[in-house]
Each structure stands twice: as structure tokens, then as C-alpha cells.
Design a protein around this nucleic acid. Structure first.
Lengths: 184, 184
DNA sequence: CCAACCATGTAAGTTGTTACATGATTAA
DNA sequence: TTAATCATGTAACAACTTACATGGTTGG
């Protein structure tokens, strides 16, 4: 139960919204949720097999040959509720950018500037993606009950990205010699 | 080179500040840097052995029996500079809290409230820790050259924690029924 | 008909954690 | 003297990724 509990949570969660094939679960995880949670094929299929064996999901033959559409069972919903109530197992921090800044004295200013530029570009790209997702969410009437939760999730990403932009600006001013600024 | 490259960066980075035993490296990583980067014993010792074989660090007998104090070599500094210049390999997102919020419709409001409370407590604790580290940094004259970099790293943590507090407040208002508020 | 996509699954390999084994030193 | 801390290292295990193997379906 401890094993793959986190993957099971994600898979059951997706199925709690509606039936899906393994492929579609992967797609769902790769889209909105993908900005906060990652799963790969190699985990999803074995997990589905296990969940089926435990009676937490049911497989029906899909529209295509060899495809199976999974549905969550009542037991599956109960399990999901349990899993959601468990305290999230913290992922050990591994922030490559901050590792580079922390040991920044051993690097050259040009390298630090690149790190900060990349960080800024990525944060802006994420904000743009979130804006696009929000626009899409507004038109999806079918999932109206879920929208507040999805919106809250996206909001976390937006605030984190904004904090990152603030940090980049502050850090540029603090660590980079003014001469390297492109202005004037 | 790809293998354990990230661990090697952290280990060489610590040694670029001063000589240390494997145990001390672990300590260093567990303290300030530990809020942004994690390494375990099982990685550090084999990594040191490899680095020594590659001539990037030198081992001298330490003060205690069976202890070895490692020093970075010129080649080690050069390698560190290279590693710091490489783009950080992104860690796949696995935010347990956001996973729980995203599927929040399948959970009860009480469980959501707990998740948010935990998030808030953790963020506040982190801010307190960062304040303590800042106070300590101010008194350390020996590492004055590194302080701007360490300070920038801590600042990233502070901004992230503050963003998290903002998010918790917003999300409570958006997702939790007003009746569950403890006020009046 | 061919490319792109839908769809499932496995096997090998890498990475990282945890527990264990061992023992010296220091402070209470 | 006993607990905590310093110190190193390994072995087993768990988690996760990647590449591979396979084949159906749809649209241009």
C-alpha cells in the first residue's frame, strides 16, 4: 500500500473525474496536472493492473482493438479519499538553479547571468501557459464542479512563478556587476 | 559524467568552500543548502571515492582514526566550474499538496483544511529557519565572500514560502465554506 | 500509402533511500 | 559508563526512467 501509493493517488484521481484509458490518463497527467505532478508510462500501466486486481478500478473494452477503458469503483473512490487524507510525502528538494547560485562564487558572472536568464524565461513561459489553461477552463462547463480546485492548483503555480520573477530581479541586482547590464 | 553529476556538483561545491570529511559534507548539505538540495550518505561516500580516483579531490588523514579529510584540487575546481555552467537538469514536479488540491472534489472539506493548515505551518517554520540562518550569516566573517550567494539562495526560499502563505490564504477563501472558519 | 497518433506492455538500467555493520571519541 | 555524536562504508531494496517491441486507427 505504501508502494506506488502516490502513483495510485494520481491514477485514481484522474479516474474519479471520468473513465479513461491508460493513454488518456497519461495525457491528463501531462496537461494541467503535469505542471505539478509527473508520471510516466512505465508506472501507470502496472499501477492500473494492480488497482484492477484490488477491485479499485474496472476495465471495460475500449472503442479500439486492444484498448481498455478504466472506470473507478466505489471501493476505488473510498481508497482515493483515504489516500488524499494521508499527509503528502515530501519530495526531497533538488533545485539545480539554487545549487548553482549557492556555489556561485566558484562560477563566472556570465554563467550566473545565464542561469538567471533561463529562470526568468521559464517562469514567464509558465505564466503564459497558465493563462492559456485558465482561458480553456472558463469554457469547460462539463467539469464545472472541479474548476475551483483546478483553479486553486494553477494559482499556486502562478504565485510560485511570480515569486521566481521577483527573485531573479533581486538576485540580478545583488550578484551581477552593473557593467553586464545591457542598458545604455 | 552524466552519472552522479548532480551529486558531484554538490560535493565539489562544498569542498570549494573548505576541506571537509564525508560526514561534514553531509552536515553542510543538511543545514543551509539542505533546504534546496538533498544528498544522502549512500551517495556522498561513493561519490568521494570516484572523485578521488579522478584526481578532483585529495584525501588527507583526518584528526580522528579512520577519518579522511577531503580537499578540492585545481582540477576539481575546474570541473566544478564546468558543472556549474551546465544547465540544471530539471526535477520532475511531484507536489503532493497540489495533487491533493487538484483532486479536492473527491476529498472532504476537513481534509482540505488539514492540507492547507499543514502547508501554512510548514511555510511559517521555514521562514523562521531562514531568519535564524540570516542572523548566523551576519556574524560569520570567515565566509564573507560567499555570503551574497548564500543570501540569494535563502531569499529564493523566503519568497517561495511567502508565495505559499499567500496561496493558502487565497485557497482557504476560495475552497472552504465560511462555516468552518474558527472566527466568531 | 504514409505519417502521426492512439494504445499497451515489458525489460533493463539508473538513481536514490534505508538499514545495517562497525567502531572511535566526547561530554554528561 | 553510557549516550550522543563523529565517522565510514556496504548491501538490499524501492522508485522511476527509458528504450524497446508491437500493432491498430485516422487523416492528409
Amino acid at each position: 500500500m505504501a508502494r506506488q501509493a502516490q502513483t495510485a493517488t494520481a491514477v485514481l484521481g484522474v479516474l474519479s473525474i471520468g473513465p479513461a484509458t491508460g493513454y488518456e490518463i497519461r495525457q491528463a497527467v501531462a496537461n494541467v496536472l503535469g505542471h505539478f505532478w509527473h508520471e510516466s508510462f512505465g508506472q501507470i500501466y502496472p499501477c492500473l493492473t494492480e488497482l484492477e486486481a484490488d477491485g479499485l478500478v474496472l476495465a471495460a473494452p475500449g472503442e479500439r482493438a486492444n484498448s481498455r477503458r478504466y472506470e473507478i469503483t466505489a471501493a476505488g473512490r473510498a481508497r482515493l479519499k483515504m489516500l488524499l487524507a494521508e499527509p503528502p510525502s515530501p519530495q526531497p528538494p533538488r533545485n539545480g538553479t539554487l545549487l548553482r547560485i549557492f556555489f556561485g562564487r566558484a562560477a563566472s558572472p556570465a554563467e550566473l547571468a545565464t542561469v538567471l536568464d533561463t529562470q526568468e524565461t521559464e517562469a514567464r513561459a509558465r505564466l503564459a501557459t497558465f493563462a492559456a489553461i485558465r482561458a480553456e477552463l472558463a469554457t469547460e462547463a462539463a467539469y464545472a464542479e472541479h474548476v475551483p480546485y483546478w483553479s486553486a492548483t494553477i494559482r499556486a503555480g502562478e504565485l510560485a512563478a511570480e515569486a521566481q520573477l521577483t527573485w531573479v530581479a533581486e538576485t540580478r541586482a545583488a550578484l551581477l556587476p552593473p557593467a553586464t547590464l545591457p542598458t545604455s
